[in-house]
Design a protein around this nucleic acid. Sequence first.
DNA 1: GGTGGGATTAGCT
DNA 2: GCTAATCCCACCA
Length: 193
Amino acid sequence: MKILKRSFFSLPADEAAPQLLGCELVHETPNGPVSGRIIETEAYLGRDDPACHAARGKTPRNAPMFERGGVSYVYFIYGMYHCFNVVTGPEGSGEAVLIRAVEPVQGIDRMSRNRGRSRLKDLCSGPGKLCIALEITPDHNLHPLNRRPLYIRERPESFNSPIARSGRIGINAGAELQLRFYLSGHSGLSRPG
DNA sequence: GGTGGGATTAGCT
DNA sequence: GCTAATCCCACCA
């Protein structure tokens, strides 16, 4: 399978988010590859989206969101966890797609150790969990996602899973917008679909 | 099965 | 000071 081209990431976040479903997020660690198929995403739309980190302008933390689409935005949350985002859109737009859940594909034993959990659906079924499982850290902030060691593979031509949408999780402002996308009925989601 | 609260810290007001 | 794009465990049913 091919790696997503740089041009893919120029899409607006609300178009990129559903198209990332079914793609494989790969991390080639020094100890071997770990990867998962993306099954749940959320779009954050930039300056005009009150739930978006970029809504109140550029700061040191959210600066990656203002880059041209194609880099990562990794941030620290709740004093303990990290969340992984794919920056999309033109430079300065402040858009990104939060990866909320993946289905384990490569390196499952390693992910189990990283997470301290054995059940498959407990490994990557949340934005904080998948960062732990896939060993995504602030070192990967601003990383170009078409290059090793962290990149995204295109979904297969045969992909035709039904995509559902809902309100975004864990936010207050803008909660009514239907910007969460997921593979309906999948058992590995961060919340039931 | 479902829910309520604690963990733990950077960044913003 | 307060909040946050979260997770896990204890506890109750």
